[in-house]
């Protein structure tokens, strides 16, 4: 198949079953070249399964994934030349130095000793830990160990990077540093497909996101499109202990989380609710609705309205940020 000039990855009706359990139920979407594309979903939604299929580790039960014109099943070796993966929960080998760790990875990929050394240095510098090249991995901070794994992926020069929850367990500072690195890679033309549970991360980093829920794409588009697709514009947070008398008007979703009650909806309704809360002398905070609000609605998590959130991608059209075939 001739590689597309604009599409880095194309998934078409990907199904995957483990025994009787269906992890993916007809996932379809495209990832454009040079974009950061985030896969969002609850634990067990099928994000990692998809990544494993797209990187040639798992076979789909049916459906196809094409990476830069190569089918990941029938032309897996060609795909592996074009991709790099930072797996979920991977740890660096503690006894080796940072440089040796990256160099070993590159040598396994077929690079010569001199070339792997040069590339390893470049990779470490690219993620900002070049000065730690000679330091043993067990003396690196958690953030730098994550960067080390990223350095492996970068230094191979693969045009498409798959990062499975790359910032899990990192402090806020380290996460932001890693975001900066990823944004830099994007500017250099790399395509990045990542999974994350951090909605702020997806919102800040991604050109587009796909929300996977129950094995299907529940929504796809830019973070703004996803939020707009849910009809959410504004949110109002009230202390749970004080919000007993505050009822959600029609069109406003009410979510409980921690010690807060959050009302999310269109500007007019939420503003009206805020005025009512003020008149009741309730302490409130109002902000724009974000991706997390949209995600919670799409995946049905913590919805306190008693209603199941609206349907899955197959029931909704694409283009308004809601699922469909994901060709956004």
């Amino acid at each position: 198949m001739k590689p597309s000039t604009t599409i880095a990855l194309s998934a078409q009706s990907v199904f995957k079953s483990y025994g009787g359990n269906e992890a993916l139920h007809g996932v379809s979407f495209d990832v454009r070249k040079g974009e950061i594309f985030s896969l969002l979903g609850k634990n067990g939604a099928g994000k990692t399964t998809f990544i494993r299929i797209a990187t040639g580790q798992l076979l789909p039960t049916s459906g196809t994934v094409i990476v830069s014109g190569h089918d990941v099943v029938s032309n897996a070796d060609s795909v592996r030349e074009l991709i790099s993966l930072v797996p979920q929960d991977a740890r660096v080998i503690k006894s080796s130095s940072a440089l040796e760790f990256v160099q070993l990875y590159l040598a396994l990929c077929g690079h010569s000793l001199a070339d792997s050394r040069r590339r390893a240095f470049e990779g470490l510098n690219a993620v900002g830990i070049g000065s730690f090249a000679g330091v043993a991995c067990n003396r690196l901070s958690g953030g730098n160990r994550h960067k080390l794994l990223l350095a492996c992926a970068i230094s191979s020069n693969a045009p498409i990077l798959f990062l499975d929850e790359p910032t899990v367990g990192l402090d806020a500072q380290s996460r932001r540093e890693l975001w900066k690195t990823l944004a830099g890679l994007r500017r250099k033309g790399r395509t990045i497909v990542l999974t994350t549970h951090y909605m702020d991360e997806a919102e800040v980093l991604s050109d587009r996101v796909a929300v996977i829920h129950n094995g299907v794409v529940a929504a796809i588009g830019s973070p703004q499109q996803i939020i707009a697709g849910t009809g959410f514009e504004l949110r109002l947070d009230v202390d749970a202990s004080a919000a007993a008398g505050l009822r959600a008007p029609k069109g406003v979703e009410r979510f409980e989380f921690g010690q807060k009650i959050r009302f999310v909806g269109a500007v007019r309704e939420v503003e009206a609710l805020a005025k009512r809360a003020v008149s009741m002398h309730l302490p409130i905070s109002v902000a724009r609705a974000n991706l997390e609000d949209a995600f919670v609605k799409l995946t049905g998590e913590t919805a306190a309205t008693g209603e199941k959130p609206t349907g899955t991608a197959s029931e909704k059209g694409a283009g308004d940020g809601r699922g469909g075939n994901g060709r956004g």
Binding site: T55, G56, E81, A90, L108, G110, F162
Partner: peptide, 11 residues
């Protein structure tokens, strides 16, 4: 170390 996946998804 969960590094096998890193190598599996490489050449």
């Amino acid at each position: 170390f969960k590094l096998q996946d890193l190598y599996c998804a490489s050449p």
